[in-house]
């Protein structure tokens, strides 16, 4: 039996399928040290976004809103096509539009990148999260937020190398793209990929998506995009949302897509050495105090001390009298 959908185009499976993204499929769970290994390994999946095929129609955004039943507020025009202006707790994916003049050709290129969670193999959000089970990673690569465990602290925002999670002002929980885990679990591809009219967004196993990307890159290179390539950044051990970029040598031109994303060293220090050394420090201070309290001799005021004080006060009192 197939464990993950191989495409987003096909209709839902006719045979009823057992939901497969369960607690048993977790490979990582936030703030949890002893997670039992998953009982099975699901086939890693990925979404591939070919920016060269994107026409900027925003069908993916609409499909995302539709499926996730979010209700983003009507946006404001701030002078460019990107709408809303940024990702929000109600807008998990966003077409970011960039007008870029290619210095080599002096052509204006209209770059459109569908922004959203990249589903990192090494997720910074999950590493930063202090709430047990609020962020999980399944064996198929999907990184998901479990809202009933979320405490709204925003640590995931600091952990994320792509600036993706958004904290709701309404229920104070973090939101982001789920890679439609609730669809994938029952054999369907993500809503955005299903809605995309040019198949700029495709979905399948990570292996298939890499192969597909190779074909696309070969095609783009044959058309003169010599730097075309796959964006699957190794700094986060690869991602389960990948891009085909026609200018893969400079990802930052696509609305500040990081050139070499990795979990911030500051976050690593905070969540690594600080956590362990800090706890040890406090533990030692407390244990040392208790130990000294038990074996050490308390510093007691003696009878002589009291007599000295009495004499001193008496002397001065007489002097005043």
């Amino acid at each position: 039996m197939m464990d993950s959908p191989r495409t987003a185009i096909s209709n839902p499976p006719v045979q009823p399928m057992e939901s497969n993204l369960t607690e048993r499929d977790l490979v990582r769970r936030s703030a949890t040290s002893s997670l039992p290994p998953p009982e099975r390994q699901l086939t890693p999946v990925a979404k591939l976004i070919d920016v060269s095929k994107c026409i900027g129609c925003k069908a993916c955004q609409s499909a995302c809103v539709e499926w996730n039943d979010t209700d983003p507020a009507v946006g404001e025009n701030v002078g460019y096509y990107t709408n809303p202006n940024d990702l929000t707790p109600d807008m998990f994916t966003l077409m970011r539009f960039t007008e870029w003049v290619n210095p080599e050709t002096d052509n204006l290129e209209w770059l459109i990148r569908k922004d959203g969670c990249m589903h990192c193999a090494d997720p910074g959000c999950l590493k930063a999260c202090p709430a047990p089970g609020a962020i999980v990673q399944y064996s198929n690569g999907i990184v998901d937020f479990v809202h009933e465990n979320c405490i709204g602290c925003g640590y995931c925002v600091k952990g994320c190398p792509f600036n993706i999670p958004r904290i709701s002002k309404v229920d104070h929980k973090a939101y982001k793209c789920t890679l439609c885990s609730d669809r994938v679990a029952v054999g369907q591809g993500p809503a955005c990929a299903k809605a995309c009219p040019t198949k700029a967004i495709v979905f399948g196993t990570k292996e298939d998506m890499k192969k597909h990307a190779e074909e696309r890159i070969t095609d783009l290179k044959s058309r003169g995009y010599k730097n075309a390539g796959l964006y699957d950044p190794p700094g986060v051990n690869g991602t389960h949302v990948m891009y085909v970029l026609h200018h893969n040598d400079k990802p930052h031109i696509y609305a500040d897509l990081p050139d070499n994303p990795h979990i911030s060293r500051v976050v690593e220090t905070w969540k690594g050495v600080t956590k362990y050394v800090g706890l040890a420090f406090m533990g030692l201070a407390a244990a040392g105090s208790v130990l000294h309290g038990v074996i050490g001799k308390p510093n007691r005021v003696s009878e002589e001390d009291e007599e000295h004080a009495e004499k001193l006060v008496e002397r001065n009192g007489r002097g005043a009298g």
Binding site: K158, S264, W270
Partner: peptide, 12 residues
Amino acid sequence: IETKRYAMLVHA
């Protein structure tokens, strides 16, 4: 966000 990361570490 980068400022917040440092603030987080310093706070801890």
